[in-house]
Write a protein that binds this DNA or RNA. Structure first.
Lengths: 184, 184
DNA sequence: CAATAACCGGACGTAACTGTCCGGTTATTG
DNA sequence: CAATAACCGGACAGTTACGTCCGGTTATTG
């Protein structure tokens, strides 16, 4: 009993297969983590291994496709007229609560040029809101963009180690500590 | 050419083999990370696979043996009369700069009872110094032991993602942010 | 309605680790 | 100085994932 044998739907299925792979990867990355076997993604997408590797030569290509939507959300927020640093950090935090795959990808392949570029891009979005936040007096005046990225990294590090159910609470506590400081 | 063929030194080598495995594991965990192949540890220790699994049935047993020394350092510091919370955090940070294997073990196997016990033990050492630090006014009065553990976890998360060369600088920055807070 | 080109699925070869098993070596005991 | 018990090393079997390859299916074209 060979289980459900997938049918070859021919060349016209190319775009659908690609979309199914991205959707499946988003799901599997979120539930089983960024390092989940690629085979399990083809199973969920109901697509052969060949199609996976044809559309996405490696894990990073697939992951980048998965994250495109999230990055677009961040860009859209940054482009809004009244955008604040707080709102941007909140959105990033929400995304990390939903899935830590992005963060895990960065820590697994920190040197990949595509990831470096994307990281710089995201850092730029934060940086663009930094001056505003300083002006408004909502963050320390001496805080640099690098400080801010490290702070985000600290929250990300905590979230990527917690089960999804505990992440919101942990994120709130982490930001509370970071905002107020632990010193007297 | 079968390379250097190890010699079977018989039962009298048991203790030496055990010690060699611990030393090799400390080295390999520090340089290749906590998830390094156990085989590479037997190579460095110049010991057969059989001896590894005889002495340490699994990775965690071996790792716990490796970390015993570090834990004793922490205990010794906590037992000193003039011990401060700052000194304890500094020592933990130094240990994490030298190797993030402990932290990585915790994040790989958070549910293992031996690790839970050890984590509680370490948390206890911090907790014991909390009252003193509060009294001395060096930390916020409303800071709980849980807050403190999360703060340590945040620093640990950063360090475990950085190459050894960058860790000291990152740790200093992370503690600076945590101490002072990023808010205005 | 062939012939062809594009694409599909999954079997398969390869590689990396884990953990076991056993023939062989060494110390001990009487 | 045997006989034996304890322990050693590494070969090996089992598992899991990756990435390729190819026979087969579908749409297109003339």
């Amino acid at each position: 009993m060979p289980g459900v044998r997938r049918v070859n739907r021919g060349p016209s299925a190319a775009a659908e297969n690609r979309a199914a792979l991205i959707a499946a990867a988003r799901e599997v990355f979120a539930s089983d983590g960024y390092e989940a076997p690629l085979t399990s993604i083809t199973r969920v997408a109901r697509v052969g291994q060949g199609s996976l590797y044809r559309h996405f030569p490696d894990r990073i290509s697939l992951a980048l496709a998965v994250f495109e939507d999230g990055v677009r959300e961040l860009e859209a927020l940054a482009a809004e007229p009244g955008a604040t640093l707080d709102a941007m950090l909140a959105l990033m935090t929400e995304q990390m609560i939903a899935s830590t795959a992005f963060v895990d990808m960065v820590s697994v392949s920190p040197a990949d040029p595509r990831i470096l570029r994307l990281g710089d891009h995201v850092a730029g979005l934060l940086d663009g809101l930094l001056a505003e936040a300083r002006r408004a007096g909502r963050i320390r005046a001496d805080l640099t963009a690098g400080d801010l990225m490290l702070a985000v990294g600290m929250v990300a590090g905590i979230l990527s180690k917690k089960p999804a159910a505990d992440r919101r609470e942990a994120a709130e506590l982490a930001w509370k500590l970071l905002r107020g400081g632990i010193g007297a």
